[in-house]
Design a protein around this nucleic acid. Structure first.
Lengths: 353, 353
DNA sequence: CTGAAAGCGCTTACAG
DNA sequence: CTGAAAGCGCTTACAG
């Protein structure tokens, strides 16, 4: 029934040539090895006719390269990560790579185990949103000459390749925009997390407030709260601080739950409360009113991420040369923010590069 | 710097035993091969101490099993698929499998190419949301004794393993609920797609309408329309059919864009317009009012999907024995539907099994 | 109980 | 230009 797959040996036998010759031809080394054009053509035609596909396992075992990449994110089902996954996939396939994904769920132990498993598979390179506590594993990988690129957040104690957003600028611009448009009391609702991207967002918020001599109002919501709990915290916080007229949410899911709180309190957006969310989301466009957001350019991010990794994989860049790529956020203004005397345009973009 | 990885040969040499012995011990065949407990312990301890991990590539080449699964979906960034991916991942890792994902984008040619690439990697099994036109590739895989499970939609012309929702029942129940709660004119807004899941949703809608002697009102929106276009179509459709008092949207993204249309027309939900979306979404809970939905139990679906595949991979079920698993939808009632004289409870669930 | 050997399907010096 | 051979790191009959 299932006929045995063709191997390079079979081809060599059928064509009465050495299998090394076949191998050279298949790998485009015919010229280099000065194999006759006639023979090259004959082999290639035969291969094409039979639909022969070299066994990648054997190839990998002998070359040490698997042409596989591991994408290790916090959670593959998150909007941000699943979109990064989609963009990365296109780039990977175009370059002959496949992607294995896994979700760390911010669990250092789980992450370590996964790294061990993936290393046993000789994956060629890693793209990782690191959780705190895996520093030594990352160092070990780098010592073993494995290309590793961190993204979204980094590990402050070690120096690595990295691609991430200019988070500071994101909140800084958001605050500045709000303040210029008559906001008097701007709050930040964020997560109780010490990850670098969150720290940067907080720092940008504080720095911009300082310039306007505004006082900060920060709510830190416990990690992994569910939507209802978040809404509850927000309601309480906004009640206790009735002078707040603008809120920046540090993630898109916080914003979604937070808006519910604003609605429950009967505050109208944007008249009584301006809203800016960090990290854009499809639904923000559809919401009523639509939600302004600090957007992470997902495709650009994926592109830089893959380029950094590919340069290492193809030895275009030395493994020891480490690069940090900082992507500029985009403030996308929609209906949830007041805009002084400017006439509002749908989806007006302020880009600062 | 990077010390060479330990191989089974090194272990055999260091311990002065044959490598076959080491291999048997590592694979738990010590008893079976009647290897002394003392030696077994000595080898296991050494291995543990050195942190030896067998090279999976070599293992795969020799056993023919890679312990890798391919997850081929329409688009990995879609809410439904990225959540299925997350649930599948947990199951896969628990059973020693890794997952390679790819997005077909409903392009039969692209899908075929991907299948060829994955087959060259000797992936053990496939979970696929098929696009029309890949029938012969699926048949070829089955003929070559590769486990393949289709999901979400199937290919009517071929018989395969399959896991999917009872889509018919989903819309049937939705219509029935609406009709029982005073809806007089129930519309279906769906995609212009002949995929089986869409056809079933339409059929369930039509069948239930018939029982109430209601006339259908169906809007088919071109595939791949963007959010604004969808909203435009909906506005026009609702204007032309002012007697519509309830809408069932055939996907969650149609619902999100469609609700915008309802808002633009100034119709209040649920008083003037009841809404039920097919396929639940996080934001439905947060929307104001919250959106009722026909929910696909994502974890259950992933569980069945993986079980079906694993049974084949572990030869618990013969490859030729094909199974269809139909998952029951859940009608989750929220704020977007009127509920006659019943008192409304938050997130009240009607489950029918 | 244990070891020598063939085999999985490739790649790549090496020798002619 | 081409071929015989070793090697990648495992598994698994086979023989003792």
């Amino acid at each position: 029934m299932s006929k045995k797959k063709l191997s390079i040996n079979d081809i060599a036998n059928e064509l009465q040539v050495a299998k090394s010759t076949v191998s050279f031809i298949l790998n485009g080394k015919a010229k280099e090895k000065r194999i006759s054009d006639e023979l090259t053509a004959r082999v290639l035609e035969f291969v094409k006719e039979k639909g022969y596909q070299p066994n990648q396992l054997a190839q990998s075992l002998s070359t040490g390269k698997t042409k596989m990449i591991c994408l290790m994110v916090e959670k593959i089902s998150d909007y941000f990560f699943s979109h990064i996954a989609f963009h990365l996939e296109a780039l990977a396939y175009k370059n002959g790579y496949k992607i294995i994904y896994c979700s760390t769920e911010n669990d250092a132990e789980k992450t370590k185990q996964m790294i061990t498993l993936l290393r046993a598979r000789y994956v060629d390179g890693y793209i990782i949103t690191p959780s705190v506590g895996i520093e030594s594993e990352i160092i070990a990988m780098m010592n073993d000459n494995l290309p590793v690129v961190l993204f979204d957040r980094y590990l402050p104690d070690i120096f690595t390749d990295y691609v991430g957003l200019d988070n500071f600028k994101g909140t800084y611009d958001a605050v500045t925009f709000l303040a210029k448009n008559d906001a008097k009391k701007i709050a930040l609702i964020t997560l109780n997390s010490e990850q670098t991207q969150m720290a940067e967002r907080r720092a940008g918020y504080l720095a911009a407030l300082k310039e306007y001599h505004y006082k900060p109002a920060i709510l830190k919501i416990p990690f992994e709260s569910d939507s209802e709990t978040i809404t509850g915290y927000c309601v309480q916080f906004l009640k206790e601080n009735p002078d707040i007229d603008s809120v920046i949410f540090a993630t898109n899911y916080l914003a979604l739950s937070g808006i519910k709180a604003v609605n429950e309190l009967g505050l109208s957006i944007p008249d009584q409360m301006s809203i800016i969310a960090f990290d854009d989301h499809d639904v923000f466009n559809i919401y009523n009113p639509s939600i302004s957001a600090v957007s992470q350019p997902l495709d650009e991010m994926a592109k830089q991420l893959f380029k950094l990794l590919l340069d290492k994989l193809e030895n275009k860049v030395r493994l020891k040369d480490l690069t940090k790529v900082i992507i500029q956020p985009e403030l996308i203004l929609r209906g949830s923010t007041r805009q002084g005397n400017h006439k509002m345009e749908a989806d007006r973009r302020l880009t600062r590069r």
